[in-house]
Each structure stands twice: as C-alpha cells, then as structure tokens.
C-alpha cells in the first residue's frame, strides 16, 4: 500500500469497514511509514463521537487551551466532523431565521375573537 492509498482508505480503516487483506496491507504500511502513522495518530487523538458530543462547547468557545487545540487538529484532518460542524452551524442559523418575527404589521383582531379567547379562560 502506498501513502496515497492509505490516505484514501484511512477513514474506512478506522471505521473497520476495510476487507481483511486491505487491513493487513494498511497495517504493513503503517509499520514502516512514519508519516501515515502520525496521521492516524492525529485522527485517533479525538473520536468523532467526542467531537460531536462537545461540539456546542467548542462553538461557544468554552473549550480551553489544549482541549481546543485537539478539537482544531481533529477538524483539520476529519472531513466528516468538518462537514458536520458546518451543517450544525447552518442549522442554528436556519432555526433562528425561521422563528423570528416575520409579521411586522399586526392584524386586526375581531371583537368576536377577543370574546372567544377571554371566554375560554374561564
């Protein structure tokens, strides 16, 4: 396995979805390639699950120093978490936009409706 092939398969490798002979090839490559084993180390430093669990703290700036660095580093090597982060942010923005008051001009409220509302309180 070459470095490029390892790179192309590293997520499948971590996910455990490679064929057994590919796993063997990847492990042989890792044993002799410092660059790829460092890369795997960076990816494994933080699990995607933990990234996602603490994503809100990360976005709120509540992670400090080393913790924040570990998250930044994971983000720079993990496209899954990078995409997840961006779509999560977009979700936050969409939620706020779709819930804000979009009816600047009040409706008239018919007398009968006022009466019905007040009667329902009793």
């Amino acid at each position: 396995m070459t470095c490029d092939e390892f790179e192309a398969n590293v997520h499948e490798y971590m996910r455990g979805t490679l064929m057994p002979d590919q796993v063997t090839a990847a492990e042989e490559h890792l044993a002799e390639c410092r660059k790829c084993s460092d890369r795997l180390g960076q990816l494994s430093e933080l699990r995607c699950r933990d990234f996602v669990d603490f994503l809100n703290d990360y976005l709120d700036g509540e992670l400090e120093g080393d913790q924040r660095l570990v998250f930044d580093r994971h983000l720079s090597v993990c496209p899954d978490c990078d995409n997840y982060l961006h779509s999560y942010r977009q979700t936050m923005d969409l939620s706020v936009a779709s819930l804000k008051d979009q009816a600047p001009v009040p409706d008239k409220i018919p007398e009968s409706l006022v009466k019905a509302i007040l009667a329902a309180r009793k």
């Binding site: 997520h11 971590m14 996910r15 455990g16 699990r47 995607c48 699950r49 933990d50 996602v52 496209p79 899954d80 978490c81 995409n83 997840y84 961006h86 779509s87 977009q90």
Partner: peptide, 17 residues
C-alpha cells in the same frame, strides 16, 4: 442523532451542505 461505531467514528460519511 448521529451514530458512531465502536471506535467512535461516524457510521455514515457526513457530506457538506
């Protein structure tokens, strides 16, 4: 909620919006 395998990796690839 998103799902992860035993090693804590996303089960499904996350695509960009």
């Amino acid at each position: 909620l998103p799902t992860f395998n035993a090693s804590g990796v996303f089960v499904e690839h996350q695509e960009a919006w």
